[in-house]
Simulated assay, not measured.
Amino acid sequence: MTDLEMLEKALADGYHIIGIFSADKIQQNHEESLKTGFVAGSVDAFIETFNLRIEKNVLLDPKNKSKFIIVLKKEPASCIGFLTSDPQCLNRAKQQLAFQNESIGLHITVRFSVSGGSSEPNQISYIDKIIDQLNQLLGWDFKKINDTYFEGNKELSSTNEEDAVKELEKFRTLSTYIAICRKIGIRIESYMISKIPRLGPYICYTGPQNSWHRH
């Protein structure tokens, strides 16, 4: 079985690509870790990070210096990896990785605190009680973090970051209205906008509420 066939079989079996790593770079990092004592750069740390079933000596073999290791994962199974220098296999892996990382939407997270008012515990309790109504009104998923902080999450099918900013502005307008009506303070502490890929972890950036216009 060729390397390309091995890759195609793994993808057909439900594995997705975690990364494509240069054996040369892995060896360089390992040599540097021996000099500096920076354990995280060692080949042992690399193998442990992905829980790979591959011999340390294989990755450190000078004959494999020009090769790349393709790491794949299938939940809940552990990662698998294999070395290759086949251009067709590497190109296919890069194409698959680009496909997996393609954004299909945006995820917004907002954290805010509640304080002040004639009876602070009652005001916080009020916000706690209307969470379900807020969720229905704006399509957010709000939850209480602790006695002071709340968090809101919302997913958009749009990949346009301006649409996420508009949703944040709608939320700020509503929170200002509630604060005025209840004579309390609602402070938006931070926000996070994440790109939702087809597969893999979210790619996100964060900032304070007064920097929304920059994105």
Rank of each mutant, 00 (worst) to 15 (best):
K67T: 13
P121N: 13
P197Q: 00
Y191S: 05
I47D: 01
V114G: 04
K74S: 14
G117L: 02
V71D: 13
K25W: 13
K25R: 13
V165K: 15
F171M: 08
A98R: 10
I108T: 00
P62L: 03
S85H: 09
P208G: 07
N146P: 02
C181R: 14
I20F: 04
I178M: 01
P201T: 03
P76E: 04
I193M: 10
W212N: 09
E162Q: 08
P62K: 12
I196D: 11
N122S: 13
K65R: 15
K67I: 03
L83R: 01
R172L: 12
K67L: 11
Q209G: 04
F150G: 10
Y202K: 04
D3I: 05
I184D: 00
L137M: 15
S211Q: 07
D13C: 11
S42Y: 11
L137H: 09
L134N: 00
D44I: 14
Q28N: 10
G207P: 07
E102M: 12
D132T: 14
I178N: 01
K73P: 00
I127V: 06
P197W: 00
G185E: 06
E120F: 09
N135H: 08
G200A: 06
S125E: 04
S85Q: 05
D3W: 07
P76Q: 01
R214F: 05
L168Y: 00
P201F: 07
L4G: 14
C79P: 02
S190Y: 06
C89G: 05
I188C: 08
T206Q: 14
K183L: 05
P201V: 00
L11C: 07
G185K: 07
T148Q: 10
Y126Q: 05
L72P: 01
K154Q: 13
I18K: 12
F50P: 05
L134Y: 10
R92Q: 13
Q88R: 11
T206E: 12
K166A: 11
F38M: 04
N64W: 01
K144Y: 01
V43W: 04
F21R: 10
K74Y: 00
E169M: 02
Q27F: 11
L106R: 10
D163M: 07
I193G: 07
R111W: 10
K65P: 02
N135C: 08
F112G: 01
I203K: 14
G19W: 08
H213R: 13
L134G: 11
P201S: 01
S103P: 12
I203D: 08
S42M: 14
G117M: 03
K65L: 02
D132H: 05
W140L: 06
K67A: 12
D86T: 01
K25E: 15
F68H: 08
G116I: 00
P62E: 07
L156I: 09
I186V: 13
K73A: 00
I17N: 13
K74F: 00
G116E: 03
G200T: 09
Q27W: 10
C204N: 14
I178E: 00
F82Y: 11
I127G: 11
C89H: 12
D128I: 05
Q136R: 13
K35S: 15
P208S: 12
K9S: 14
N57R: 05
I124A: 04
L134M: 11
T49C: 10
F21P: 09
T2F: 08
H213M: 13
V165I: 07
I80W: 10
T206N: 08
V58F: 02
F50S: 04
D24R: 15
G185V: 01
Q133F: 08
T49G: 13
V71F: 01
